[in-house]
């Protein structure tokens, strides 16, 4: 230990730097914001292409809710959207809780240890079950509590990976460079804070049986924001806005604006 430090642990330095950046983001934005006008986005863009696309969305989605940009935004926004849906359709909640239970069995079947997976599962089951007799406001607080909110994200990541690992044939053809599903999950699903991409969205929405409509506010051609429902052909229960690297929640006109 006394030979001097010619070799420094760069990983540790990089991680410390990333932590500092994340902390800055955390201090500037809540995990889940209150509802706001979608038109507030106009102030963020000077670019005419984006301005045109935003204006084209305002009738369909007059309201939105922002998610903190921490690499977990898809998982968190989607989970929040699901909670809002079942808060407004309490009769359908028991079915969803049952689906959650099945996803836990699937996680065990995929080889995740019960000992660690059950903490995340129990948190999600417990929090969503509160919607039986509590309003969405209660869950809004949950989603803004670091500990609980991050456990929900961790569980949704687990479900995503477990679904891919138990449906290898569906996903393997889409992986590049001969990567295995297990390696993909270890790199792009399991680690906390790694962005969610198309394949993960397909896996998660299939596993939970809740379709999502995504409006794409990006540089692609066209005067309107393209929209896609995943999984294809199902009725979307959650509406999200995609901007490169980020997801927020959108609300169609009779907005489910709880806060």
């Amino acid at each position: 230990m006394s030979e001097g430090k010619d070799e420094v642990n760069r990983d540790q330095e990089i991680m410390a730097q990333m932590d500092a950046i994340k902390k800055e983001v955390a201090e500037s934005a809540p995990l889940m914001s209150d509802v706001m006008d979608t038109s507030t986005l106009l102030a963020e863009y000077g670019d005419p292409l984006f301005t045109t696309k935003i204006k084209s969305m305002l009738d369909a989605f007059p309201k939105m809710r922002k998610t903190r940009g921490d690499g977990n935004c898809f998982y968190r926004a989607y989970a929040y959207g699901i909670a809002e849906h079942f808060a407004a359709h309490k009769d359908k909640l028991p079915g969803f809780l049952e689906t959650l239970k099945q996803t836990f069995d699937m996680a065990l079947a995929a080889g995740y240890p019960e000992f660690t997976a059950e903490d995340f599962y129990e948190t999600v089951q417990e929090q969503f079950a509160r919607l039986k007799d509590e309003p969405m406001e209660a869950l809004h607080a949950t989603f803004n509590d670091d500990g609980l909110s991050n456990y929900i994200v961790a569980y949704f990541r687990l479900v995503t990976a477990a679904h891919m690992k138990t449906h290898v044939d569906d996903f393997l053809p889409f992986l590049e460079g001969g990567e295995t599903v297990a390696a993909f999950c270890a790199r792009a699903v399991d680690p906390f804070g790694v962005d969610c991409e198309h394949l993960q969205i397909i896996a998660l929405t299939q596993a939970l049986g809740v379709a999502v409509n995504i409006a794409y506010l990006d540089r692609s051609a066209g005067e309107t924001a393209a929209q896609h429902v995943i999984p294809d052909g199902q009725e979307p229960l959650v509406f999200l806005l995609y901007r490169p690297g980020h997801y927020d929640i959108l609300y169609p006109p009779p907005a489910v604006a709880h806060t």
Binding site: P113, T116, A117, F120, L158, D190, P191, F192
Partner: peptide, 9 residues
């Protein structure tokens, strides 16, 4: 480091 998952213990 970059492959940490909360399911590890």
């Amino acid at each position: 480091q970059n492959k940490w998952s909360p399911t590890y213990n």
